[in-house]
Amino acid sequence: MTGSEKTKRPVQPGRWARTAVLYVVLSAAAIVVLFPFAWMIMTALKQPGTEFDPEFFPKQPTLENLKRVFTEFGFVRYFLNSSIVAVSSALFATLFASLAAYAFAFKNFILKEKVFAVIIASMMVPGLMYVVPQFAIINRLGWMNTYRAMIVPHLANVFGLFLLRQYMTTIPKSLIDAARIDGANDFQVYGRIVVPLALPVVATLFLLTFQFHWSNFLWQLIVTNKESLYTVPVGLSMFKQQHEQLYALKMAASAVSIVPISVIFVFAQRYFIEGVTKGAIKE
């Protein structure tokens, strides 16, 4: 109904009301969703031992926890390690997935459907099943206590392949055919048409893989026996001891740990959400 009204008379009040309702709904949802986030920050500012006082706001806010995280707990090193692992993993995993997705979306080759089915099926086996055999391979390769051990096993990102292929199939075939007629080879089609068109999703995948590695605790712990190679998630788990949880410290470290990905998101979101594609199609 609103649609037809809108077309009849471009009345401002109706639109205003709708926008207002939208803002109210979105703000309410944002408050609910962000509550744990706010709690984390508030707990990070509390004195150790007073984490579970009923007050939401700390009585005597302190930055001591934050300071201790970096001075006493070696988080500087953990951040460096995690950055290396997460950036290179995300980079190569996204590259490999996009190349393979291109083949599955636009190429014809033998056993294509079957290979794809097997690859997708591997995603459906619980991750727990992979840990021991993967570790055995890492050990056989002599990669214990290296960044490689944390990075390489996860470079075949099935989830990413699936995601990218799904998007690539929505790219109009006519665009590809047109380029082919102009004499473009596969790499040119991939690099100049498909990737730019799929950029929002490629960038999203980069972000998600980065996030995955930034929080992958168990694997990164299993392949390292050296504290100098510990990553952020391993460091975070240090705050949970056998009998006590150092909540204030843990929350302080958690809050800092999500800064990199949040910054990436805030600054990169225009590239992967807002109309890059529309410009690319005109080309």
Binding site: V132, N139, M144, L221, I222, K226, V234, K240, Q242
Partner: peptide, 28 residues
């Protein structure tokens, strides 16, 4: 080597499976 408490048992089990366990560990 200081190991986070939550990860100790999975880490020991994985390393035993491939004969890369340490000499000594502190366990519950």
């Amino acid at each position: 080597v200081n190991i986070p408490f939550d990860g100790l048992e999975p880490k020991i089990l994985t390393s035993l499976a491939t004969q890369t366990a340490p000499d000594v560990a502190r366990v519950d």
